[in-house]
Amino acid sequence: MRVPKSLTSWFYVSPLLLVIIPFFVMPIIVVIAASFMQGDGFGGILPTFTWENYQGVFSEQLTWNLYVSTVKFTVLTWFFTLIIGFWIAYYLVFHIRSELLAMGLFLLCTVPFWTSNIIRMISWIPLLGQNGLVNMALVGSGVVKEPLKVLLFSDFSVVVAYVHQLTIFMIVPIFNSLARVDKRVVEAARDAGASRWDIMRRIILPLSRSGIALGSIFVISIVMGDFFVVKVMSGGNSASVVAALFENISVLQYPPAAAHAVVLMIVVVIMIGAILRTVDIRKEITQ
């Protein structure tokens, strides 16, 4: 008697499911359930059905402000990480001739990913602060008379921190898809008389599309779901959806927080779904 192959596969993924189900699926279900219930004001939840939490979310002007602010951060971060990430990946794949050197430089870019984000954020303080190095340089060279205050604890520093942390999420997938491009294809195109611009537009950009999509999914979902960078880097001056959610739960308002969370997740799922329409992520990842 042979065990069906599907059963063996399920046996192998069962440990994964034993983690994913209690620590991802069930918590999400709990959050959705809580969003339809009433709080007792002390962190407890009463099992009474109510639309109140959603009415609250959709009637507040604040909600729209939060989403505008969050989407603003998301778009700005996405734009800069894409531009920088694409050119870095392109540079590493097509301009570095030694494969070993390219791999080394690639690792140089990825090492900070494995270090603490919090520390990397804090480390902007001595640079961007009012008495930081950048201001010292600007004042010293006479570009500005007074130290700039907008450099730290502002929207600017929030975007800087996001780009700093997340560009790697663009570099890696774009690097991967470009590294798979057969260099002879580019040579053949050049041979056929294509200009460098033609090659970029007709060959390299289309071939890096899946990498861009994958990177975008990471960047967008991380920025949309983050509260921590906004909180630390804006010094409390900027808001985002999850930052507001964090305020909610620190005063033990779980059901309204849950409603906020559900709306946010729906928005994120729609955005990611739109990206997934353009690329088969499963094929891209498993090849």
Binding site: I28, V30, I45, G225, A261, M265
Partner: peptide
């Protein structure tokens, strides 16, 4: 059912950390 498992995994990866934290806390 591999696709279901795959997308559950991707969901778990990109889910907002704080939301998951709240859910696990409530659970």
């Amino acid at each position: 059912g591999d696709t279901v498992v795959f997308y559950l995994m991707i969901g778990s990866l990109v889910a907002p950390g704080l939301v998951l934290g709240i859910g696990i806390g409530l659970l």
